[in-house]
Design a protein around this nucleic acid. Sequence first.
DNA 1: GAATGTATGTTGAAATTTCAACAGAAGGTG
DNA 2: CACCTTCTGTTGAAATTTCAACATACATTC
Lengths: 223, 223
Amino acid sequence: MKEYHSVLERCPLFDGIRLEDLGAMLGCIGGRTISVSKGQAVFREGDAATHVGMVLKGAVQMVREDFYGNRSIVAHIGQAELFGESYACAGLAALPISIVAVEDSKVLLMDCRRITVSCSNACAFHSRIIYNMLRLVANKNLVFDQKIQVTSKRSTREKLMTYLLNQAKLRNSDDFTIPYDRQELADYLEVERSGLSAEISKLRREGILESEKNRFRLLQKYS
Amino acid sequence: MKEYHSVLERCPLFDGIRLEDLGAMLGCIGGRTISVSKGQAVFREGDAATHVGMVLKGAVQMVREDFYGNRSIVAHIGQAELFGESYACAGLAALPISIVAVEDSKVLLMDCRRITVSCSNACAFHSRIIYNMLRLVANKNLVFDQKIQVTSKRSTREKLMTYLLNQAKLRNSDDFTIPYDRQELADYLEVERSGLSAEISKLRREGILESEKNRFRLLQKYS
DNA sequence: GAATGTATGTTGAAATTTCAACAGAAGGTG
DNA sequence: CACCTTCTGTTGAAATTTCAACATACATTC
């Protein structure tokens, strides 16, 4: 666990908690660490929404799959980021999405009630943690809003550009890598992979962007 | 204001606050009531995201509009529901959406910081309010997730059915009215109005649903 | 009650996406 | 190095959506 202290420190859930208090804090919350290998699910759609996860190592995705196996990717969750918190905090009975590891990962699982309900010994950190959780859940709304912004667009081209422009803004650079391969990007944008590839080629030919694998570079502002 | 006390009581933001304390509470939070007429914006995309609104009377929509005037409806906010809370709690500088009244409405505006940051006189209600806010923001995530579920579908038919089945589940009935007319429903589903009308007719002919204006009745489970 | 405006349904053509299939590139393995 | 697998790009046909235009129903206003 100690090896991941730097990750814990970076997670906004523990903002304002002093390093030396982190141990007690974790004891109070009662977390446990698990390992998941690439492709394995941490939570499955329909599972009880009681726990919050934090990515200590690796990365996971929020995904939804329908009858026919069509995969939809809702969000990418990287190191020091949380997942499941919104559903647990909302008191939802069953998870509407699955969480799947995209690489071999380590995850810290915490019972959400022990975070959001003040503990019996009313530890001093607790109100701070609740406040931090509020910010994090609110931030997850922004992540969802991003996805809505993208999928609200009608064409593959607009979806892609909306996503790329957002990424550029987030990274504060016109040159960046994305956490998705082509199929995953298609599953995030909700379009066909083949059509997406074709559109990327077209944008390249038109001199609007350069790309190589999952690295993109936007050459002009807008459109 | 007194006339809206019953609305305030119904809003989960004030869960656990006794009726007789509501007045003090509101003073502490410092809310003010405004009237907005149909079609008018309460907040505009780009506005500072500092305030939370509650619908006392009427209804509003979260909308986003692009250069070309294509309207996208993100959510319908009815009586006793909040808006803007996620963006304010996330500490976002500018709102990424607009809030527009869909009928003549009355709205209670509150400064979000005065809700989420404990006040100097540390009023007893405050920690409860923060906890309530956490639940509400988490719940807004579910509203967003609904929208994502709908717009993740590829065809007009699937989008419509996903929306209608969700509504039926929420209302706990196969017979329900929706808060949208055809154009608004199209703007929520992110499809063409004409194509949506055609699809509804088709579903009617196939005996899958009945509809009359904004009232729908699902005749079979699934598909 | 005539005129006007709004909402909804219908339709055919144009544009776009999806689907299926294949080819080349890159990486790992025996 | 041959073999296998995975990823990406390409392409043409089929399916679907968008677009534009119009018809109808209904409510409102003068």
